[in-house]
Design a protein around this nucleic acid. Structure first.
Lengths: 330, 330
DNA sequence: ACTCAAAATGGTTACGTATTCATTTTTGGT
DNA sequence: ACCAAAAATGAATACGTAACCATTTTGAGT
């Protein structure tokens, strides 16, 4: 591997000068500059980023621990995060993690002394929170948040669940089911609580079988859908805990020869880009703002990194219903 | 920052022993091992990946230069690549590049001495090919390929274009338009040539206005759709150069109150995961194999890295039509 | 021509790890 | 109890860069 020393020898200058040519060329005379540049070109020299990171103790790299891309929410956020970060001169180390392999992912992120970490799937009582704090690594969570209630960007999940149910009620539905994810996740938990509150406020009955909180796999969702539709008094509407779940439900419904919304109304939460596609037109609840959560998160994170500002980030975006075509009056 | 020296001091051993505890614990006695582990834990020591990379000259990192995620093809491939790489113990540095900022992306990838590079959007005569070869960095391209015709994984693009047109012809269409991407890209070019060949083989006429090769932005596609539908003899079918384009076209069509396939049949190429969703059911041409191109590419790349095998990779997957619901007999 | 400040360049070191080689400690056979 | 071999540990060094400080060169003002 050709190093700056090789370049120096080839150009007849010191290694220091080579370094200067690359990092502060204003301090080096034109002729020397040219000599060095020629040598760099002749030898196809490329500086070693690791050596630089080692001595400078910064990496211009951000670690992104995202949920899986088969969830369109993470497609939107990952895209926004990587684009903005690149724009600002940071590289992004992406890992798509499931809750099991979380610790492994944390470890490799920390080993590489990234300038910041952005987490989508932190657990309520995740020890990583304290760890990152103690190591003084800037970080932010989006989508989910930690029980410490700091450094997060989220939508108003309770309100989202509430509005989803309210929307169905306003459409005249009274038999409304809930299909959400694990309640150990702050996001799903709050959305669920919002849903319950709306049901309660409107004095609707909610049979136990109408509530399904499960893992977010396609299999599980398929199973949930079957169970709901085979009930004696089957629901006429389903509030899904996330657009990804809603999209699964719709997929299953269609494949089982139900039509949406004629046979059953379905609403999601998140307002992912895909939901507005002409073929989908998913009714959903999402942030009022144009920017997705990933964008907000990376913007704040880079702000933290560069301004070293310590003011705690707590952003909760307001939400509204986006009424499209997967729900209708009964 | 706490280093292995600090740990050594705290445990009363040499730095060498600390390194050994982490990398070859079988050579260190149980009591020393425990002492060191305790010190590591006490001090919250995390080894510095950059220092390690520097001395070992390997990074366990792969750079992925992918197309943008708003194209569902890259969602599928990115997901497959990152999952497989992580499974095999590699981290993945993802960049979503547009053809303009390609060089910048190359540079940061190379600076960090990644173990391998995987490229989705190489240009036909891209100098990066020679550069990576000269630097002895293993790499592979998927989707597109370089004119050197080496180290790539692709589907049979010509055949895909041919089959798309043939499918429409078999459905009785005679007025078939083409909406593809820039022809400087190997993928689009070959698909287009296949399309042309099918039209020619079946002795159909192809008015000049039926051929639109443009950039793959939503705007451009919207414009293309309008132009086609306003023709005096408007086509009854469109072959799209990729599923992403087909999905855009369908989105536009629906928003303009056309119905697919009643008003117009549309077929894509790639068979992205999304295309089989119940609400979409896009007819498309895709690889016969279950695995997507990203998976094939990363598998080959890691093989190259680990076995240092130099046999040139040239994989072209056969294709077939997946007949769903966006095309119909006329 | 001479002085002195400013500009340009070079020598040396630190960053944190793994590796190589040298040294010390332990073990087992007599 | 002694010795050789094996096991365990340590000291020194390299990796490639940036930063710090020292030195040399340049140039402006007299």
């Amino acid at each position: 591997m050709v190093s700056s020393k090789d370049v120096a020898k080839h150009a007849g200058v010191s290694q220091t000068t080579v370094s200067r040519v690359l990092n502060s060329p204003e301090f080096v005379k034109k002729p020397t500059f040219d000599k060095v540049m020629k040598a760099i070109h002749d030898l196809n020299y490329v500086p070693n980023g690791h050596a630089r990171s080692l001595v400078q103790n910064k990496t211009e790299t951000i670690a992104l621990l995202s949920g899986p891309l088969h969830n369109p929410f993470f497609v939107d956020t990952t895209s926004a995060i990587v684009h903005y970060a690149n724009e600002m001169g940071y590289r992004v180390n992406v890992q798509f993690v499931n809750d099991q392999k979380l610790n492994e992912a944390y470890a490799t992120a920390i080993e590489h002394k990234v300038d910041g970490v952005i987490l989508s799937c932190i657990l309520l009582d995740d020890p990583i929170f304290e760890k990152l704090t103690r190591m003084n690594i800037p970080f932010i969570t989006y989508n989910r948040k930690h029980k410490n209630n700091e450094y997060f960007v989220e939508i108003d999940n309770f309100e989202a669940g509430y509005l989803a149910a309210k929307h169905m009620i306003e459409q005249g539905h009274t038999a409304i089911a809930w299909v959400g994810g694990t309640l150990t996740v702050s996001t799903f938990n709050n959305r669920y609580l919002g849903f319950l509150q709306a049901i309660k406020d409107h004095k609707l009955s909610l049979p136990e079988q109408y509530i399904i909180n499960t893992d977010a796999s396609k299999q599980a969702i398929t199973h949930a859908f079957h169970k709901l539709m085979q009930l004696e008094h089957r629901p006429t509407a389903i509030c899904a805990g996330a657009d990804s779940l809603a999209l699964f439900l719709i997929d299953v419904a269609i494949q089982e020869n139900y039509t949406v919304p004629e046979d059953i109304s379905i609403i999601g939460i998140d307002n992912v880009d895909l939901s507005s596609h002409g073929s989908i037109q998913l009714t959903t609840v999402g942030s009022i703002s144009e920017q997705n959560l990933g964008y907000l998160a990376i913007r704040e994170l880079i702000e933290m990194i560069e301004n070293k500002k310590n003011s705690c980030i707590q952003i909760t975006e307001s939400v509204k219903v986006f009424h499209r075509s997967t729900t209708q009056k009964i």
